[in-house]
């Protein structure tokens, strides 16, 4: 066998592999797009939901009957709204808020359109997460800062938030993974992302293998997010060691 024949053999082998890999290339492209869309929806929704949910959670804590400024009326009204939004299943909320979505984004289809219901669903969830994290702060520490003449505002941003930081970070990891799984439902309204692909190929076309790949990817993202969240929360906690 000459060197030329050997090279020819390699060339033929290469052709065969390329032919075999072509659908994989498409699949890779599809997956990459879905991955980026999922990431986009998750990150934008989480950020926007925190901007709304965090202050609401703090207000709920401060106005609580055991809080630093008990205000039953404010606490009652906000608590009620939060509970109502929390009790609507996301899949229904997704459809119910379509007029709002159209008013804000201009369309009800696509990743950006999915951000609106995601924020509406996640903000009250975050409010409750923040509330429960901040309520873990030792009552005595709050009392001590009040005894030094701290104002309610100073107590919130100098005591409650820094002292609850590890718990808030853990909560953020949990919230992000929850929003990620919500975003998978966006496929129902053509929202894009890995969940959308799973439903379109797996359910509508019966390509279970593609669905399985998407599920594995979603699981992997959740694992990485949660592990990262735990690690950051731990590193930020000065109560350990």
């Amino acid at each position: 066998m000459t060197i030329r024949e050997l090279l020819d053999l390699f060339r033929q082998l290469y052709e065969v592999i390329i032919q075999a890999l072509l659908p994989v290339k498409d699949l890779l492209k599809l997956t990459a797009e879905g991955f980026l869309e999922t990431l986009y929806m998750t990150i934008v929704s989480t950020a926007a939901a925190y901007i709304i949910g965090m202050p609401v959670g703090l207000i709920l804590t401060v106005t609580d009957k055991d809080g630093i400024k008990p205000t039953p009326l404010v606490n009652g009204i906000i608590g009620f709204i939060v509970n109502v939004l929390r009790s609507v299943p996301f899949i229904i909320l997704l459809i119910a808020v379509m007029p709002i979505t159209r008013a804000i984004v201009g369309t009800t289809i696509g990743s950006s359109a999915t951000v609106v219901p995601l924020v509406i669903a996640a903000a009250p969830y975050i409010a409750r997460m923040v509330e429960s994290s901040v309520k873990e702060v030792d009552r005595g520490v709050i009392e001590a800062s009040l005894s030094m003449g701290a104002s309610p505002f100073q107590v919130v941003y100098k005591v409650l938030l820094p002292e609850a930081r590890p718990s808030l970070l853990l909560g953020a990891a949990i919230t992000t993974t929850t929003i990620l799984s919500y975003s998978a439902m966006a496929g129902v309204v053509g929202g894009g992302g890995l969940g959308d692909i799973a439903i379109r190929y797996g359910h509508h076309r019966g390509q279970t293998d593609i669905m399985m790949i998407m599920i594995v990817l979603l699981v992997a993202i959740v694992q990485v997010l949660q592990a990262a969240g735990n690690w950051i929360a731990r590193r930020n906690d000065k109560r350990i060691r």
């Binding site: 030792d138 005595g140 520490v141 009392e143 001590a144 005591v159 820094p162 002292e163 930081r165 590890p166 906690d237 000065k238 109560r239």
Partner: peptide, 8 residues
């Protein structure tokens, strides 16, 4: 209970 800020 001392009531120190644990993160400071």
């Amino acid at each position: 209970g001392y009531n120190l800020l644990m993160q400071r």
